[in-house]
Amino acid sequence: MKQTLPLVITFLIGTLMVAEFFVPHAGVHELTALLQEWGLVIAAAAFVLGGINVVQVNIPKIARRERDWGYRVVLIGSALAMVIAGFIPASVFKPETGAPLFGKEGIVFTFLFDYVFAPANATMFALLAFFIASAAFRAFRARNLEATLMLSAAIVVMVGVIPVGEWIWSGMPAVKQWILDYANNAGRRAIMVGVALGAVATGLRIILGLERSHLGD
């Protein structure tokens, strides 16, 4: 029973979701929309679980003064600061003119967003520039014919994107575009077809109850 019931539920709901794509009847759509809404509610409720998880993982380690406990204080502290700044209603401290102090459009939240979150976020993304340089130096090597072909195509595309490409040869952007439109698109589509069919096979394995590892089989 412990295994059969989940398998039956999976089969019924999975088949319904697939059927929605083929059956335009509004009744089917309403049922799937309702199920998707439930899914959204569960996902939102999981944020509470996530919060509990953060506390459970970090607080004991701070209490025991485990290695690098300071970072955990920063994590809990910054999460709390953001939550407090956003959750206090805007009406708590609202001056006559200008924006309120709290609330998600309040001064505190906006300040944290603009001057802490935004730069930190952009910094992480910007690390890519450095990592690409080191990865390119280390891994991009003409070991064999395929790697050499890929390398040459990559260099043409990179040179074609920047103005120097046009300066070297006016036809460079056109060659770059040709590589992107034909060679690149052909490869992408082949992978996309494979991914789509792989996804269908995985979906079928779960819907038909062939894959049961998650149920302790």
Partner: peptide, 30 residues
């Protein structure tokens, strides 16, 4: 693992004919 290989891993790791059958089916559809 490129693209579809990701979806094959779970079946591949078990070597169970039942699960590998679904991979074969997807391959023939391809």
């Amino acid at each position: 693992l490129i693209g579809e290989e990701l979806f094959a891993v779970s079946a591949y790791m078990t070597h169970e004919p039942r699960l590998i059958g679904t991979l074969k089916a997807a391959d023939y559809v391809k």
